[in-house]
Design a protein around this nucleic acid. Sequence first.
RNA 1: GGGGCCGUAGCUCAGUCGGUUAGAGUGCCGGACUGUCACUCCGGAGGUCGCGGGUUCGAGUCCCGUCGGCCCCGCCA
Length: 627
Amino acid sequence: MTETLSATAYRTIPAGELRAEHAGSPARLAGWVHRSRDLGALVFLDLRDRAGLVQVSFDPTWTPADVLAAARELRAEDVVQVEGTVERRIKVNPNLPSGEVELRATGLRVLTRAEATLPIQVDYAADEELPAEDLRLRYRYLDLRRPELQRNFVTRHRAAHSVRNFLSGEGFLEIETPVLTKPTPEGARDFLVPSRVHRGEFYALPQSPQLYKQLLMVSGFDRYYQIARCLRDEDLRADRQPEFTQIDAEMSFVDEEDVFRVGEGMMATLWRDVLGVEIETPFPRMTYVEALARYGTDKPDLRFDLPVVDVTEILQRSEFRLFQSTMGTAQRIRGIRVPGGARMSRRETDELQDVAKRGGAGGALWVKRGEDGLSGQFAKALDEATLNAFLGVTGLEVGDLFVAVVGPFRSARMGLDEDGRVPTGLEAAADELRRHLARKMNLVDESKHAWLWVTEFPLFDWDPEAGRLVSAHHPFTMPHLDDVLALFAATEGEGTISADDARRLYTLPMRSRAYDAVYNGNEMASGSVRIHDPELQRRIFRSLGIGEQEARTKFGFLLEAFRYGAPPHAGFAFGLDRIAMLLARATSLREVIAFPKTNSARALFEGAPTPVASGDLRDLHIRTLGE
RNA sequence: GGGGCCGUAGCUCAGUCGGUUAGAGUGCCGGACUGUCACUCCGGAGGUCGCGGGUUCGAGUCCCGUCGGCCCCGCCA
């Protein structure tokens, strides 16, 4: 996909599109002065527009004296129109796509001037530091002129365009849903919008079009999509903005396989269109439980393997107090074999302690296998039989390192501890170690595009404060077929579920038909097969502690819709911002969002949020609390 | 809500143990320069050391508070 800009009233061709083939022809260009070089009698300037840069040369041989004098007065970011002839350069600049030619100027018109002292520059040398990000956000229109940043938005546009093309080709209809909607009781904090007409009542901005897209399925549209803005009033991160964009889609008469096929096809097409890269489909699948056990995370980066190995039963028998202490407890000994890791220095192995601690472990234990056997913290504790079993299970070869952590693992046993809390496992430590070691040992294959589906996410999370179940995905997620019986058994009768039954369902655990798409260790999409049966939906609400009356108040319109013939349906939502960020190789969402918010959800450019006049508040029936 | 880092010229940064007139690069202004491309060379201007308070004979530097930015934990169904 390439986009070309056309000739306009101000130009015959975009400056950045000039090439050798244009040599000899007259041209009129319009754009910004990127940089100028005044050599006295000669002046060069680099003219920039969206298409790129081209050199314009002012020389007494072809430039009238008054034009040359005017050219000497030009400064960076003045907007000009220049006229002349495209000619081959005396010396080619290989760093510029237009570097074989220049425009020999015969005419110059200054359209607008930029103030001499710019708050931030547009033009930077390769090794020059960019200004502080708050300044770049304050003067966003200047920062956005930078070719690097412009490229990101071209990438983002291509991604969105590719997605629309693909989904349209698959029969999806683009349908818009409301931005003023109803607050949602579960999940993230809503942005609220006060109603002027209805005193004391509020709209919410949508966290996602979830309910609407399900209603569209009930309405018979069969396949819907929308590149939808979603808003959540939660704290920010480098990869999280309060408003973000999802490729939201829903399909009727489908199961997981249909959804996966569309999602994979969409991503493969997108990667081909934008990067020219072929992605293998179908994506590999892995259940949530598998992912957690094998990689310590529900979004494993499969550009490298480094699986987590359980060596509890083997090492419990060794002469090592910490290992022995796991006997008869739920504690596990798990670790990672690092090929070639034996060459890590003392300093590097020491560093592993901090990495493991970051993940909640007490520390990390390691052994190296050298030519003459094991060395390291627990090397001497293994007798011959234990050693052989250890080497057999881990596959530890000469030159390898094995790093282990000891403690509880969630994936070994779901449940709650005595205080009704969700116990934290050392999966996080394994995950930290795995990613740290891969980076450190250079095991990440940067050329890989490692997609996968993670399936069978838990249906419920536990809210220890309220002592009740909450939806892990959302309350409309279909339970796993094998777990539906347990759900029905626990939700007999009219009322909400008992605390014991709730705990039992959590501990079981109840699995769902929710899934994520993961790319190189990033969560790119999530979705689920939805509930379309009113009775099953009621059971879910009961288990969430939501009674009949409450359900009607909160989700009445959806439940009502389900009473009149709802098709089986499922869908997904991909994060467009994150996709654009990764395609552009950016490290922050702010690099692919034109006007992003800061960490504290402020817009430095336009200065939102802001206090409003008291009269405006009065109209909305709102009074702010004093100190 | 919590932890970490940062705030000095338009911009990027240095500033030693608390001590003379707060420096550099770049940009800006003036001058020179006929093939540059981060042009080069010469000269000049440019400072609320984020803000408020405190300690001190003396604070960019130490202490307290506060504002703003970035990264992370909690949170984000």
